[in-house]
Simulated scan of single mutants.
Amino acid sequence: MDVITWTGELACHLQAALRMGRDEFAGKLGVHPQTVAAWHSRPGIVPRPDMQAALDTVYEKALPPVRLRFAQLVRPPEPTATQTLRVAVAVVVRRGEVLLVQRRDGGPLDWQFPAGIVKPGGDPATVAVRETRAETGVHCSVRQELGSRIHPQTGVAAEYLLCDHLMGEPTNLDPAENSDTLWAPVAALTRFIPADRIYAPILTALEAHA
Rank of each mutant, 00 (worst) to 15 (best):
V127L: 03
A88S: 15
R42G: 04
V98G: 02
Q83C: 15
V31C: 09
P33D: 11
M20C: 13
D23A: 15
E159P: 00
F25K: 11
P43H: 12
A81Y: 06
P64L: 05
R22M: 12
E145V: 12
E159N: 09
Q83I: 14
L85M: 13
Q153N: 13
T80N: 14
R94A: 10
A16K: 10
A81Q: 14
L173K: 15
A210I: 03
E131M: 03
V58P: 00
P108K: 11
G106V: 09
V142L: 00
V101M: 07
G27W: 10
S41W: 07
L29H: 04
P76G: 09
Y59Q: 13
T57S: 08
V93C: 04
V58T: 04
V66C: 06
P170F: 05
V156L: 07
V129Y: 00
P185T: 06
K28F: 11
L109T: 14
I117G: 01
V129K: 05
V87P: 01
E169I: 03
I150V: 13
Q102Y: 03
R95D: 13
E97W: 00
L73T: 05
H40I: 07
R69P: 00
R149V: 10
P194C: 07
E159D: 09
V31H: 06
L162T: 01
I45D: 11
D56N: 14
L182Q: 03
C163D: 04
G137L: 01
E207C: 01
T154G: 12
P43V: 12
E131V: 06
P120R: 05
Q15K: 14
Q144D: 06
G21E: 14
P65L: 08
R75I: 07
A125I: 02
G155Y: 08
A205D: 00
A17E: 06
G168P: 05
R22W: 08
P64N: 09
G116M: 01
E24D: 15
D23L: 11
G137S: 10
D180N: 09
P47S: 10
A62K: 04
P175G: 04
A195Y: 03
A88W: 01
V138N: 00
A195Q: 13
E145Y: 12
G21I: 12
Y160G: 04
G121H: 04
D50L: 07
M20R: 15
P64D: 07
W183N: 03
R22N: 15
L166D: 12
V3G: 06
G106H: 09
E135D: 11
T7S: 15
V91A: 09
W183D: 03
A88M: 06
Q144G: 00
D180G: 04
L55M: 03
R103Q: 14
E169W: 05
R103P: 07
R133H: 13
Y160P: 00
R191K: 06
G107S: 11
C12A: 10
A26V: 10
V92T: 12
T35L: 08
S179A: 14
L146T: 06
P108E: 14
R19C: 10
G168F: 08
L29A: 05
D110F: 14
R67A: 06
D110A: 14
V3F: 10
L29D: 01
R94Y: 02
A188R: 15
L14I: 05
S141M: 05
L173S: 09
S148Y: 08
E78K: 10
S148N: 11
M167Y: 14
V101Q: 06
S148I: 02
D196P: 01
L63S: 15
